[in-house]
């Protein structure tokens, strides 16, 4: 592993694929010496970041995320844009390993010289998905990509993380299988800058249009804190390349409006502050559990609670007071 920050900085800025890939590896590494190195690299890359459209995409498994990303990616590449895709694949909790098949589902795009697809395992998190993906996104921006898409498996916490790094957060949905919002939490719907109902083709078309109305009603219930933008509900068929251009127009429209009013800059600043706070919390946690006093007290108190000799509240108080002394 090359240890000179200049190697990474100049390589990324020159658009060298291999060095770009190695830099992302560094971002993802759990070794302290790599983290130190990448911090320096990122600091020097920072002036070259911020120029891409940052698009976050999520949706439940089976919604057609890969197909959508492939279709949108192809559309952009054909328009002469350079596209980077960061995909997060779940790691097994048993083995720690993972299978990353994103490229098999983006066969055309993965062969395009102007596309860069990097799947990453979610596992072995040190700082979590958000830190790694966010920094990888900055690296891609410095490498000159016009659009960076971040794609995650749509369950749980990861959507919130994606929303916190994207300019535009797109939620993909399907025509309802009866359960309306398909396990998508209300909180995630609130974060969406647009909802696209996918698979609007063939037998499914009528159902999709119906679903569009249901989602539109649901979205109206949320009061948006963004006065410039009310999230539209779109339909598309990623498989048949229908409605993809319209989705992209929406993203661009949003980008223009937000840029013009300065809201985009505000959003990114807010995200950066949020990011700092998240990192701080994670850092605090790591630091906290490494304190000798905590390491000593924690097992002891756990045992006391197990035996019913103490309550959780009392135990926490005991640890925190011990630190104050």
């Amino acid at each position: 592993m090359e240890t000179d920050p200049e190697y990474y900085v100049s390589g990324v800025c020159a658009g060298n694929r291999k060095i770009l890939a190695k830099t992302i590896t560094l971002v993802e590494s759990s070794l302290p010496k790599h983290q130190e190195l990448i911090t320096g690299v990122l600091n020097r890359l920072l002036p070259f970041t911020g120029k891409a459209v940052r698009l976050g995409i999520t949706g439940v498994p089976g919604v057609g995320k890969n197909t959508f990303v492939e279709s949108l990616g192809m559309l952009l590449v054909e328009r002469g844009q350079r596209v980077a895709i960061l995909a997060v694949d779940p790691s097994s909790t048993h083995s720690g390993g993972s299978i990353m098949g994103d490229k098999t589902r983006m066969e055309k795009l993965s062969a395009q010289p102007n596309a860069f697809i990097r799947p990453s395992p979610s596992g072995g998190t040190l700082g979590g998905v958000s830190r790694k993906t966010r920094e990888s996104l900055l690296v891609c921006e410095a490498a000159g990509f016009d659009v960076v898409m971040v794609e995650t498996v749509g369950v749980g916490q990861s959507e919130v993380s994606v929303a916190s790094i994207a300019d535009f957060f797109l939620l993909l949905m399907l025509a309802g299988a009866g359960d309306g919002l398909q396990g998508i939490k209300r909180g995630i719907l609130e974060l969406a800058d647009a909802v696209a109902v996918n698979k609007a083709d063939g037998d499914n078309l009528a159902k999709t249009l119906q679903a569009k109305n249901i989602y539109a009603d649901a979205m109206h219930l949320f009061s948006s804190d963004n006065t410039n933008w009310s999230p539209p509900i779109l339909t598309c068929s990623a498989l048949h390349m229908i409605g993809i251009a319209e989705v992209w127009e929406t993203v661009l429209d949003h980008h223009e409006k937000m840029s013009a009013t300065g809201a985009l800059e505000q959003k990114r600043k807010k995200q950066a502050i949020q990011w700092m706070l998240t990192l701080l919390e994670e850092g605090l946690k790591d630091w906290f559990y490494q304190i000798p006093e905590v390491k000593k007290l924690l097992p002891q108190l756990t045992w006391e609670i197990e035996r019913g000799e103490s309550t959780p509240t009392a135990a926490v108080r005991k640890i925190l007071t011990s630190l104050n002394n």
């Binding site: 694929r17 890939a21 790691s91 390993g97 993972s98 299978i99 990353m100 993965s110």
Partner: peptide
Amino acid sequence: FADFGFDVDISPMFQTPAEASRIAIDND
């Protein structure tokens, strides 16, 4: 291999050597 704890990338089928090598580089 994933069960053994490797991170495994699978390429699309019917690759040319140039395509496969690019995935190897991009995914490091």
